[in-house]
């Protein structure tokens, strides 16, 4: 098992290098001159040239990339072009906010989505099931931006219960969390329902019922546990998306998160911020993926044995196993 984890971590290194190279290249070849943007239309060409020189923007692509790479390897992500603050400081100021929001909204999505999905599956075609499915459909199709504004209009302007923006206390989290998790709740509900429906029809469930097992035990111990693998996958993906920063929600609720930082960075051609942000997100994605793979093993002992067997020849065993877990 440990071997498996170590190997996965080693595999992450070329991924991160690749991400660094791609994002650097993309920013390098995008139109727009950061020096001109900083100084504005009023500045003379000489002044812009001077600043370009100072920022090292006149060096060749290779020189700039190598300089960036050596810095990054030493843990120095550079200095923000616009604020002149180290990129690590900027990102670390935003990361906790984004992380907290991602955790809360994912927890909320799990707490609402899984029970709703189970009820829907157990009471298939009932009124409850239909209502849940319609709501889930709305959750998936409703534009995030619109939902966020609707929530503020209702809870802040009309009822006056919740503060409209900012993140200065527990109450402030309610609307952003609901708004960010709307899509996840809907996706998790639908996934739970379909996965449960599949499992419920299996022979071993019928056997459990036949031997007189209580309904609760059948649902939670036999059915849910076996239906959990695809649900975990969906939760992982949703959590990862939330970690990348919910730009739209950050904008509406004026939350200083990672997404906003990066979008501003792209607009201002603030290369160090964008590169640093993407790198941090890539690292988080990698860690998350690993955690999810490990979680599979806890849920499904069959996968655990596969990890142990395959740790000699690392391949994408977990994925294959996950697929099997669903179909069996």
């Amino acid at each position: 098992m440990l071997q498996f984890v170590l190997k996965r971590i080693v595999v992450t290194i070329p991924v991160l290098l690749g991400v660094t190279f791609i994002i650097f290249t993309m920013m390098f070849f995008t139109d727009g001159d950061p020096a001109r943007l900083i100084l504005g239309d009023d500045a003379l060409p000489e002044e812009v040239e001077l600043l370009r020189e100072e920022m090292g923007l006149n060096d060749s692509f290779l020189e700039q990339f190598l300089r960036y790479l050596t810095g990054t390897l030493q843990g120095d992500l550079g200095i923000s072009y616009t604020t002149k603050v180290p990129v690590t400081t900027e990102i670390m100021a935003r990361l906790p906010v984004t992380f907290k929001l991602a955790v809360f909204s994912t927890l909320f999505a799990i707490c609402v989505g899984i029970p709703a999905g189970i009820i829907s599956a157990v009471r298939q075609y009932s009124v409850l099931d239909n209502v849940t499915m319609v709501l889930a459909l709305i959750g998936i199709t409703m534009p995030n931006f619109w939902l966020a504004l609707l929530l503020t209009l209702f809870f802040s302007v009309y009822l006056g219960w919740l503060p409209a923006s900012g993140l200065y206390g527990p109450l402030y989290y309610i609307m952003p969390v609901i708004s960010i998790s709307a899509l996840s709740v809907a996706t998790i509900t639908r996934m739970t329902r379909s996965s449960m429906l599949e499992v419920i029809r299996q022979d071993y469930i019928r056997t459990a019922r036949a031997k007189g097992q209580s309904e609760g035990k059948i649902i939670f111990r036999h059915a849910l546990k076996n239906a959990l693998i695809p649900i975990i996958t969906v939760i992982g993906i949703q959590f990862a998306i939330a970690l990348g920063g919910a730009v739209v929600n950050e904008q509406v609720f004026a939350i200083p998160g990672l997404g906003k930082l990066m979008v501003d960075g792209i607009k201002a051609r603030n290369y160090p911020i964008v590169q640093g942000g993407v790198l941090v997100i890539a690292i988080m994605f990698s860690i998350l993926n690993l955690l999810i793979d490990l979680l599979y093993a806890f849920v499904d002992p069959r996968i655990k044995t596969q990890y142990q067997r395959s740790s000699a020849k690392v391949k994408s065993a977990p994925v294959a196993a996950a697929g099997k877990g669903v179909s069996q």
């Binding site: 503020t152 209009l153 802040s156 302007v157 923006s165 509406v252 004026a254 906003k260």
Partner: peptide, 18 residues
Amino acid sequence: ARIIVEGSARAIDLETGG
């Protein structure tokens, strides 16, 4: 000085007294 980039969010915050 709070930074609220979205225009309508600034307006709503003003209306709610935030």
